[in-house]
Design a protein around this nucleic acid. Structure first.
Length: 281
DNA sequence: CGGTTGCCCTGGGGGC
DNA sequence: TGCCCCCAGGGCAACC
């Protein structure tokens, strides 16, 4: 489900419950997520204190205080396509069918990881090994960081013969954008998803960087406003409530202008792209 | 080497 | 109502 804004919303939702708390129980009902869970995971995290909950790209990073002989470590959690976290007071409610992992804190709260499609990932690595980890080392900059500028975008796209849409989904160029926000940002910037990435010059890059930052920021703000519901509920609450201009709106009139066009859908690299051919060039 | 394709899984929705 | 096909917000290995 989650792209950067959803993962950031989850981070903000769980951080107050986890930071400074101690993990008092950890159980995995099944270990076969997209990658197999590390062995002895429960024994390795039980009793550890959480020092920070961070995010990098679409990964949640739950940092654990050192405990001899282990140094500081970090639980790497990726929600995949269908993963979600549920925060709830500890009680006797049995786990749902897809609640594969649960852990409890010394503050009386329980975190459950639900993931029907099991594309999620949970791993545990040494904190000082994180930057060199093959999942993290190649990642591009955070799109909301000051590093992510029009000049950077022009440079990373220079000479590329893929489409701008595929380039935005390439986490090694810029990290955290998924299919929805790629579509939405390209619409807002007036750039066709079919444009070759190498033909994006300074003017388009300036519009695109601004659009990406705006779309992601607004989505985080929208998610943040309902994060409380998400935390209090059993997970079905509508924290994932965003309104999209073009995504999943094939055939609808192009919103926000009088171009007279309608939203088209094309498949690029196996993913649906939604755009207005009249407005986006 | 860079870029595209297939696959990992399950569930939901639309068409017939 | 039921069945079957298609589709899904991610990421990676295998392939050209």
């Amino acid at each position: 489900m989650p792209e950067l804004p959803e993962v950031e919303t989850v981070r903000r939702g769980i951080a107050p419950h986890l930071e400074g708390a101690r993990i008092v129980r950890f159980e995995a009902r099944r270990a076969d997520l997209r990658t197999k869970l590390p062995s002895q995971l429960a024994a390795r995290v039980t009793g550890r204190r959480v020092t920070a909950v961070r995010r990098r790209a679409k990964y949640l990073l739950i940092e654990l205080a050192p405990r001899s002989p282990a140094g500081a470590e970090v639980m790497i959690l990726h929600l995949g396509m269908s993963g979600r976290l549920i925060v709830r007071p500890i009680d006797a409610t049995p786990p749902g069918k897809h609640e594969h992992i649960a852990f409890a804190t010394d503050r009386g709260m329980e975190i459950r990881f639900s993931d029907p499609r099991r594309f999620g990932v949970l791993d545990l690595v040494a904190l000082d090994a994180l930057d060199a980890d093959p999942r993290f080392a190649p990642l591009g900059p955070e799109p909301l960081s000051r590093e992510f500028t029009p000049e950077f975008l022009v440079q990373t796209l220079a000479g590329s013969r893929t489409t701008i849409k595929a380039a935005l989904l390439d986490q090694h160029r810029v990290a955290g954008i998924g299919n929805i926000y790629a579509c939405e940002a390209l619409f807002q910037a007036g750039i066709s998803p079919r444009r070759l990435a190498g033909t994006v010059g300074q003017a388009r890059a300036t519009r695109l960087v601004a659009a990406i930052k705006d779309v992601l920021s607004r989505a985080i703000a929208a998610g943040g406003s309902s994060a409380r519901d998400y935390v209090q509920s059993s997970g079905e609450a509508g924290w994932f409530q965003h309104s999209w201009a073009v995504y999943d709106r094939e055939g609808r009139p192009c919103p926000g202008c009088d171009c007279g066009g309608s939203v088209k859908r094309v498949v690029q690299a196996g993913r649906s792209s939604f755009y207005c051919a009249a407005r986006q060039r």
